[in-house]
Design a protein around this nucleic acid. Structure first.
Lengths: 123, 123
DNA sequence: TCATATACTATATATAGCACAGTAGTGATT
DNA sequence: AATCACTACTGTGCTATATATAGTATATGA
């Protein structure tokens, strides 16, 4: 049978990309930093094995650009920042996100209302 | 390069399950009905090829139960309704959904604030 | 009879999250 | 100086889900 903890992973599909892109639009970021930020976010834990592939994919798609920089506290860091196309893409993702959450919330609310009373609502 | 329409599909991972379960908790539903309801929902188009596999999966997991019923307007329908475990699962999914959307919205808002006074996304 | 809308089933593919393993630089503790 | 812990990036492979595609079968109306 399907494992419940697994649903999280499915729910996050695409959202990791959105969050990473959002952070890279704000300012230059490197992988380890993003991993820490995303993992400390409430209800959202994203391991290295997820973050780095996303960075490489976004860079390959021309949405992020990168440069190396020496670090005084460890190995060199690969800094990523959003390109203009990355910024445009983020705006697009955010508006899609808004539409989708609105649709899902509508479904949930309709159902919650229906519970308890005998209402059979149109969906 | 990654195409944008594709992201939708990723974003929907898990959400289709949530919506279908929600509808099957409210009352008995059959596949074609769910397909129509989900496809007419704003910002959410879900084809048959997605709905039926989800129904079978949820039933296999014991979250839905089904029965056949003759229809006066076509082939017999397989009606699904949520089991008690399905109801419990829905509550769990909804609360995870709330936590996740809150986290993502927080990310988005933080970034949007940073973009407020300066440049906007030029392409 | 033939077309159309209804309704379910089966198969195959692409993608993303992520577990797991590996490489390597830096600074502190022993 | 040698070990350890923290930092930081790379690579491989598995799994689950959405969905495209194709197929089967029933009822109704032209």
């Amino acid at each position: 049978m399907t494992n419940a903890g697994n649903w999280d992973a499915q729910l996050k599909k695409g959202l990791v990309e959105l969050c990473i892109l959002a952070m890279a639009v704000e300012k230059e970021r490197y992988g380890y930093e993003l991993t820490s930020a995303l993992s400390s976010a409430d209800g959202f834990s994203v391991p290295e094995g997820t973050v780095y592939p996303v960075l490489r994919r976004l860079a390959a798609d021309g949405l992020l650009e990168s440069r190396w920089e020496e670090s005084s506290s460890g190995p060199p860091r690969k800094y990523y920042r959003a390109t203009p196309r990355g910024v445009a893409r983020l705006d697009q993702l955010i508006s899609q996100w808004r539409v989708t959450t609105a649709a899902v919330d509508r479904f949930i609310n309709d159902i919650q209302e229906g519970r308890g009373s005998g209402r059979s609502g149109e969906l």
